[in-house]
Design a protein around this nucleic acid. Structure first.
Length: 815
DNA sequence: TGCGCTCTACGTGCG
DNA sequence: GTAGAGCGCA
């Protein structure tokens, strides 16, 4: 019972029974169906199971029509999982009528019904983060604001913050010059989106909220009556708009059930407000509260370690996670010497695990920031451990994919400026930045979209665009612009009668994009073509799916789906080790977990700007989330030095380690730190050289690369992370963070000339066209070589594209 | 106009 | 380490 939550509950016929193995509070949560209900569900307490049975119970026992039930989840994946489990209990016919989805997908679905009432075009597009930033950049330019003083990212996050409080540009009091500029940007941003017939993710919710809260609106009336039971999962992560939305949707009946855990609130930076769950009882004075505190997931040592971390958190809802599971292995806290050493350690433990018969799919590696993944990935790859990375650069963010999607979006909605801007000169049609700038000026002057500005620009009617009597554009440019417009008009015509996949193929053909890539005939272009093929396939899959559901396959529908799919949804159920940030790990569980980079400044993470003071609290909860993902085995690693973001840092082990109870934890040294611990003070040498003031040099760290195959060894019984400065373990000082001895003059760039490194001799034999192998990227072809003390080659790798790699990391291939 | 080089800044990321 | 922006040159 410890691991699998979903054994019981085979429903006899269409009538699911409440399975006996649900414990007291769980059964209460399932059976309590009238009035507001707040469920505090601790980590691993069988939450999903309770939600599923609760819904099944509503339908089977209380005969609630499925289409009257709304269940909101945090990710599509969670929604999918819930539907899947419900299908097993209730069958697909009933589940099809349920409303299960994320806030955004539910809102899009509702807006599709009521787009007119919401004042939206039928073909509205959804702008993602990149699109939004592009809009802000354009607005900054338009307002003649310096984008260094007003970084688009910051401006955008302010705009988001306003939106998540439900405030428009006119509801904000300006508080100083910066605010003033931000406000002007906000106005411009809203205007551009409206003009482009685009919405951002916040707008999806706000649009529905406005309808629901409008007592006059007929659409709002429909929405208010639509659902008789509303259930919200991960309630600790809702923001104010989401909360208002939920309250408005169930105002007429109060059958609102929310499930969450304030200890797992980790998205404050994104607008989530843990006070919402903490204040639920105040907002719903009649609410019942049920606490699920028994953890079924993890061995007791893991639960104890997690409790140690969360116990000292401030302002917690009082509750105590407990487990009757066996104590299991202790949590191992591993002191590594560097990030390479750490990665090697992780890889060798994974090898042991798989040798013991643990499936790679049941192993996960977590990190605080994506930047940590590179080294881990390199080692796993060289050790031939299969892995999948969740997040990072996603498929839909690759340039060629975005380009094709932008074409499709312009086909659906020519006013979407961000997309038009992206593709107007891809592939090159001699429409350069000068022309585009003019087009933007015309568009801004006339307050129309870029697409609608093409006509006036080529007509030269806009005299104030240019000085003097010269035509606004040359004949050539005029031809290019009109050619582009005609192309788009043809594609739009095609879209009226053809399927989405046919339109996509037509785009690739008519634009010459496919031909261009084929002619390039190198590995990079090849990879791009393959990606485009993959996108076409996903469109075909969509068409297939719609056909099966008996619905028309529309281009807008496909584009909408793409917009609403995210990283967290891409975890495949395949035998591969999963690598992800801790944020992406929320809601998941694994047999064995490696939590890496457990160092001060990295975890808890310290940002450049010394702004928000409460952040450590959220980091603490993040640590709690990470630890509670592990069922059986948990390794927590920290490195005494780490090269990240282009500099080397010396960080102390994380403060969170000290909060874990000693009995649940065991300190371990990697072979490298062990060696250093034995070495007498002063002769460590392993720290190599220091690059001085530039901080950009490499360390001699000769051992790092050779150490990849770290061997099994015995461990110190003493906790390696405790007070390293005065530890009784001899030589632990060396593992402690401190500046290394300097061996070159400050400011002088140190170049690693390790005699053992693959020799320069080979670089001479490399030339343009040489085939080479790289540990991480595999086979590639050399495009060019920059000579120098440490020559660098530009190499095209199949599937990875063009990379600049130091020649000594390349192995030449014969032939 | 477009390419290639240099400089910079770098969190986490639902949908 | 590296992607993306800015800038100078062909």
């Amino acid at each position: 019972m410890a691991e699998q939550h979903e054994h019981g509950g085979q429903a006899p016929g269409d009538r699911p029974v409440i399975p006996e193995e649900l414990n007291g509070p769980q059964a209460d949560a399932v059976e309590h169906v009238d009035g507001p209900l707040l469920i505090f569900a601790g980590a691993g307490s069988g939450k999903t199971r309770v939600i599923v049975y609760r819904i099944a119970n509503l339908i089977a026992t209380h005969r609630v029509p499925p289409y009257r039930i709304l269940a909101v989840t945090f990710t599509n994946k969670a929604a999918g999982e819930m539907k899947h489990r419900l299908e097993r209990l209730l069958g697909p016919d009933i589940v099809r009528d349920l409303w299960v989805g994320t806030f955004h997908s539910v809102c899009v679905r509702l807006l599709r019904k009521h787009h007119e009432a919401a004042g939206l075009d039928r073909g509205f597009v959804i702008y993602d983060d990149g699109d939004q930033r592009a809009v802000v950049a354009r607005v900054l330019k338009e307002l003649d604001l310096d984008d260094r003083r007003y970084p688009p990212r910051q401006v955008l996050s302010r705009i988001h913050a306003y939106k998540q409080e439900g405030r428009g540009p006119d509801d904000v009091d300006s508080d100083g010059y910066f605010d003033d500029a931000v406000l002007r940007c906000y106005r411009g941003y809203e205007r551009h989106l409206k003009q482009a017939s685009a919405v951002d993710f916040d707008d999806l919710l706000l649009a529905v909220l406005r309808l629901v809260e409008d007592p006059e609106s007929l659409a709002g009336d429909d929405l208010r009556r639509r659902f008789s039971y509303v259930l919200v999962d991960e309630f600790q992560d809702v923001n104010h708009v989401q909360y208002r939305l939920v309250r408005a949707l169930c105002k007429q009946h109060d059958n609102l059930c929310v499930v969450g855990d304030d200890d797992q609130s980790i998205y404050r930076w994104r607008g989530a407000d843990v006070r919402v769950i903490r204040g639920f009882r105040r907002d719903f004075p009649g609410a019942s509260v049920i606490k699920l505190e028994q953890n079924y997931r993890s061995v007791a040592n893991v639960v104890q370690a997690a409790l140690g971390v969360i116990r000292s958190a401030k302002d917690r809802e009082p509750k105590e996670l407990w487990t009757s599971n066996r104590s299991g292995d202790q949590v191992q806290v591993v002191a590594a010497d560097s990030e390479h050493d750490e990665a090697a350690w992780v890889a060798s433990r994974i090898k042991e695990l798989t040798a013991e018969g643990v499936s790679p799919r049941d192993i996960a590696v977590f990190y605080r920031v994506h930047a940590q993944s590179r080294v881990l990935e390199e080692v796993l790859r060289s050790e031939r451990i299969p892995y999948q990375i969740i997040g990072g650069t996603r498929f839909f963010e690759r340039a060629e994919i975005k380009n094709l999607l932008s074409y499709l979006r312009v086909v659906v909605n020519p006013r979407t400026d961000v997309d038009l801007h992206r593709i107007i000169n891809v592939p090159s049609r001699k429409i350069g930045s000068t022309t585009i700038d003019r087009l933007i000026q015309v568009a801004d002057n006339l307050r129309v979209s870029l697409y609608d500005a093409i006509e006036p620009l080529v007509e030269g009617a806009i005299d104030d665009v240019r000085a003097g009597g010269k035509p606004a554009v040359t004949t050539q440019t005029r031809k290019a612009l009109l050619g582009f417009r005609d192309l788009m008009e043809d594609l739009r015509k095609k879209a009226r009668e053809a399927s989405p996949s046919q339109v996509a193929e037509e785009v690739l053909e008519r634009t010459g994009y496919a031909k261009l890539l084929k002619e390039e005939d190198n590995a990079e272009a090849d990879a791009r073509l393959q990606n485009l093929q993959e996108l076409l396939q996903s469109i075909l899959d969509y068409e297939e799916e719609m056909k099966a559901a008996g619905e028309p396959a529309l281009l807008t529908g496909y584009l909408e789906r793409v917009s609403l799919t995210s990283d967290a949804d891409t975890l495949e159920d395949v035998p591969k080790v999963a690598m992800m940030t801790i944020h992406a790990a929320k809601g998941l569980e694994f047999h064995a977990v490696f939590l890496t980079g457990m160092e001060e400044d990295l975890f808890p993470f310290r940002s450049m700007e010394p702004s928000r003071g409460d952040d450590v609290e959220e980091e603490r909860r993040l640590a709690y989330v990470a630890i509670t993902r592990a069922r059986e085995k948990l390794w927590i690693t920290h490195a005494s030095r780490r090269a990240i973001f282009g500099q080397t840092r010396y960080n102390a082990p994380s403060r969170f380690l000290k909060d874990m109870p000693e009995a649940a934890v065991r300190g371990v040294l990697t072979p490298a730190t062990q060696m250093m611990a034995r070495r007498p003070e002063g002769s460590s040498g392993g720290f190599g050289s220091f690059s001085g003031a530039s901080g950009a040099g490499r360390f001699g760290g000769r051992g790092d690369r050779d150490r990849a195959a770290s061997t099994r060894f015995d461990t110190s019984p003493r906790p390696a992370w405790r007070h390293p400065q005065d530890s009784a373990v001899s030589g632990m000082r060396d593992a402690a963070p401190r500046p290394p001895p300097q061996s070159v003059n400050p400011g002088e760039r140190f170049i690693d000339r390790d005699p053992d490194a693959e020799s320069d001799g080979e670089s001479i034999s490399l030339r343009r066209g040489s085939r080479v192998r790289h540990e991480r990227f595999g086979l590639g072809t050399v495009n060019s070589i920059d000579p120098g003390a440490d020559p660098i080659a530009s190499v095209t790798f199949s599937g990875w594209g063009l990379k600049r790699i130091k020649v000594r990391f390349l192995k030449p291939l014969d032939g």
